[in-house]
Design a protein around this nucleic acid. Sequence first.
DNA 1: GCGTTACTGGACAATTTCGATCAGGATGAT
DNA 2: ATCATCCTGATCGAAATTGTCCAGTAACGC
Lengths: 152, 152
Amino acid sequence: MRISAKADYAVRAAVELAAAGNEKPIKAEAVANVQGIPLNFLENILGELRHAGIVRSQRGFEGGFRLARPAAEITIADIIRAVEGPLASVRGAPPEDSKYPGAASELPRVWIAVRKNLRDVVEQVTVADVASGRLPRAVAKLSDDPDAWITR
Amino acid sequence: MRISAKADYAVRAAVELAAAGNEKPIKAEAVANVQGIPLNFLENILGELRHAGIVRSQRGFEGGFRLARPAAEITIADIIRAVEGPLASVRGAPPEDSKYPGAASELPRVWIAVRKNLRDVVEQVTVADVASGRLPRAVAKLSDDPDAWITR
DNA sequence: GCGTTACTGGACAATTTCGATCAGGATGAT
DNA sequence: ATCATCCTGATCGAAATTGTCCAGTAACGC
C-alpha cells in the first residue's frame, strides 16, 4: 500500500503543467528542475502520460508539454492508472475475482471496501484542485482531521 | 497501491485461527492446507505475527498457533502493520513529512486523505468480523455498493 | 536548408522487494 | 527420551522499482 515514486512524480508533473496554464508548452527540463525529478526518468513518465492522452507534447524549439484536457477534468486516479495500471490489487489481481477458501470467504468484501475508499479520494481530486490548493469538500474534510496526520 | 501476498496470507491465517475458536492451537500445516498457502512461507509470516504479539505459539506435539488476544480486538490494520510496516507511504516515507516544491505544495493533503480513508476501513474491521462474515456497518456499506465491484 | 532545440522510444542496469524454499536447531508435551 | 512441531536464518530467482543513456526525429527561426 504505497505510492510509488513514479506515481508521485507523475502527479506532481501534471499539477505543475496545470499551474502553468495552458498557453504555451512547458519543457520537461523545467518541470524536472522545479519539482526535483530526475530529467530522464521524468521523460519516461511524460511519455506514458502522453500515451494515455493526459498530456500533449510539442517538439523542437519552444516545445514542451501541456495538458491534453482541462485541468479540472483530470483526476489523480487518471494519472495513477496511466503510469501504474489498476489502482488496487490483491497479489496482482483485482480483488473481486479471487475466491477464498474456508473462514476467509468474506475477506474480498474487505478488500473491495478498501479499494472503494481509495477511489473515493483519488477519483474526486483533480489536478486543478491540487494546483489551486482547493480540494473537494469531502477530501478536505478527511485531510483536515488532525488524527489523519498522526504517523501510526 | 497493492495488497501483497504476504499481507493477504497473514490476514487469512489470522481469520482461520479466529474461526477455529481459541480452545486448542492450530497447526501451521493445517492453516496452510485450508488456505492454500505455501507452508514454509506461512511459517515465516506466523513468526512475524508472533513477534508482533498477535498470535501465540505452542511447540511440540499438539502444538500450533492461536490468537494472543480476542479476535474482536485484532484489526486488519494490526496484521498488515505487523508484516508490512506502515500502512501507507509515499516513496517509502510517511506522507506528512515531505515538502513539495512549487505547485504541488498541497499534494500531501491528498495523500493524507488517501491514508485516512484506508485506515478507516482496515482499522475498523477485526478478524472476528471477517470470520463471522459480519462486517461493521460502515464497511459493509462500502462493499455493498455495486459500483465498488466494477474493475476500473 | 541548417542548426538548434526538445521530444521519442527503447535499451540497459543497479538495487530492492517479493514470494518462496530449505536446512538444521530448539522446545516442550507425553 | 522421543517425536511432533515450531524457530531461525540463509538463500534464491524473478520481478519491480528507479533510474540512466542515447541515437533518432520533428519543429522552428534564420
